[in-house]
C-alpha cells in the first residue's frame, strides 16, 4: 500500500497548500469578514477582494475577523520580531509584519512560480522530447545538438541577466513571470530527456508496432496509443518539476534574484530569516516548513503516480 500511500499523501499536501494559497486574500487580511455597516451587515473583506473600496470605519464595527487578521505587508514598528503568541500565531518579522499572513500569501507566489516554471519547462520539453523519442534518427540527432548547446550555456548568466538586470522589454514583466521564464528555459532539458526515453520505449512497444503494422497514421498512433501511455510520465515529470522550481526560487532569493521585496515569498522569508536563526527562529522555521511541505508533496505525488501507473515498477 506504499504506492497509493504516497500518491494520496502527496496529493493531500499539495491540495491543502494550494487551497490555502488560493484563499490567502480572505484567509489573511486586515479587513474583517463581517462588519456592521450603515445598512446592516457588510463584508469589507469581500469588498476589497473584488476591488470596491471598503469603508474605513470597518475596523471599529467588526463582527467577524479573518482567521489571520493581518495584511502581509502591514508594517508595525511596535511589534518587531515578536515570538509566536496568541496575537501573532507565527510571530512577526523585522518590520512587525505578521509571519502567518506572509507565509500564507507567500504560498501564492511560490506555488505560482513553481507551477508556471514547470509549465514552461513542459511546454518546451514535451514537444522536444516527444519529437526526439518518437521520430528518432535525424530529428533526434539535431535535437541533441541543440541540447548540447544549451547545456554548455551558463544558465546562471541567463538568470542574472533576466532577473537582476531586466533589460528592455523584460522590465515590464512581473517578477513571477520572469523567474518562471528563466526556470523554464533552463529546466526543460531533464524533462525532455525523460520524455524522450519514455517515447522511445513506447514507440518500440508491441501495441504501437501492431497499430503501425495495421496501417494507422502517425497522428492516430500518437493520439490513441502513445499519449495515454505517456500521460503518466508527463504527470510524474510535472510533479517533480514543480517541486524543483519551488526550491530554485528559494535558491534564487538567496542569491538576491528572486521575487523582490516587499512581496512575500517563502524563499525570500528564509533568506531574511537566516540572520536571526538563533534569536528569532520563527522567521525562518515556518516558511521553511511550508517550502518543505510543498516540495515533499510534489515528490510524493510524482513518486505515487509513477508507482501507480508505470508498469515497470509494479512487482
Amino acid at each position: 500500500m506504499a504506492r497509493t500511500g504516497s500518491l494520496l499523501a502527496g496529493a493531500a499536501l499539495l491540495l491543502g497548500l494550494a487551497g490555502v494559497a488560493l484563499a490567502a486574500p480572505l484567509l489573511a487580511t486586515d479587513q474583517p469578514w463581517l462588519a456592521r455597516g450603515p445598512q446592516g451587515l457588510v463584508s469589507p473583506a469581500i469588498d476589497s477582494l473584488v476591488g470596491r473600496r471598503p469603508s474605513s470605519r470597518a475596523a471599529e464595527t467588526a463582527v467577524l475577523r479573518a482567521p489571520i487578521p493581518y495584511a502581509p505587508g502591514r508594517v508595525e514598528l511596535e511589534d518587531i520580531r515578536k515570538p509566536p503568541s496568541k496575537a501573532h500565531w507565527l510571530g512577526t518579522d523585522g518590520l512587525g509584519r505578521d509571519v502567518a499572513a506572509r507565509v500564507v500569501h507567500g504560498g501564492r507566489v511560490s506555488l505560482t512560480v513553481g507551477l508556471l516554471a514547470a509549465l514552461a519547462a513542459l511546454c518546451v520539453g514535451l514537444p522536444v522530447g516527444a519529437a526526439a523519442g518518437y521520430r528518432g534518427g535525424w530529428t533526434d540527432a539535431a535535437i541533441s545538438r541543440v541540447v548540447e548547446a544549451v547545456l554548455c550555456f551558463p544558465a546562471l548568466l541567463l538568470a542574472l541577466v533576466v532577473l537582476a538586470m531586466a533589460p528592455g522589454w523584460l522590465a515590464g514583466l512581473p517578477d513571477v513571470l520572469r523567474i518562471a521564464l528563466v526556470l523554464g528555459v533552463t529546466g526543460w532539458i531533464p524533462v525532455a530527456r525523460y520524455l524522450r526515453g519514455e517515447f522511445l520505449r513506447i514507440r518500440g512497444s508491441d501495441m504501437v508496432s501492431a497499430a503501425r503494422a495495421s496501417g494507422a497514421g502517425h497522428v492516430r498512433v500518437i493520439v490513441r496509443h502513445i499519449l495515454p501511455s505517456a500521460l503518466a510520465p508527463v504527470l510524474v515529470t510535472a510533479a517533480f518539476a514543480v517541486g524543483a522550481a519551488v526550491l530554485m526560487e528559494a535558491a534564487l532569493s538567496f542569491l538576491g534574484l528572486g521575487v523582490r521585496p516587499p512581496t512575500p515569498t517563502w524563499g525570500g522569508m528564509l533568506t531574511e530569516g537566516k540572520t536571526h536563526v538563533m534569536s528569532a527562529w520563527w522567521l525562518a522555521l515556518f516558511p521553511g516548513i511550508a517550502l518543505f511541505l510543498a516540495v515533499l508533496g510534489c515528490n510524493l505525488l510524482g513518486e505515487g503516480i509513477r508507482d501507480r501507473l508505470d508498469p515497470r515498477t509494479r512487482s
Binding site: L95, G256, P262
Partner: peptide, 17 residues
C-alpha cells in the same frame, strides 16, 4: 539597487506605507 544589506528592502517598504 539590490544590496548586500536587506535593510534597503525594509526601508522601501516602510516608506511605501
Amino acid at each position: 539597487p539590490t544590496s548586500r544589506q536587506e535593510i534597503s528592502g525594509r526601508i522601501a517598504a516602510w516608506i511605501q506605507q
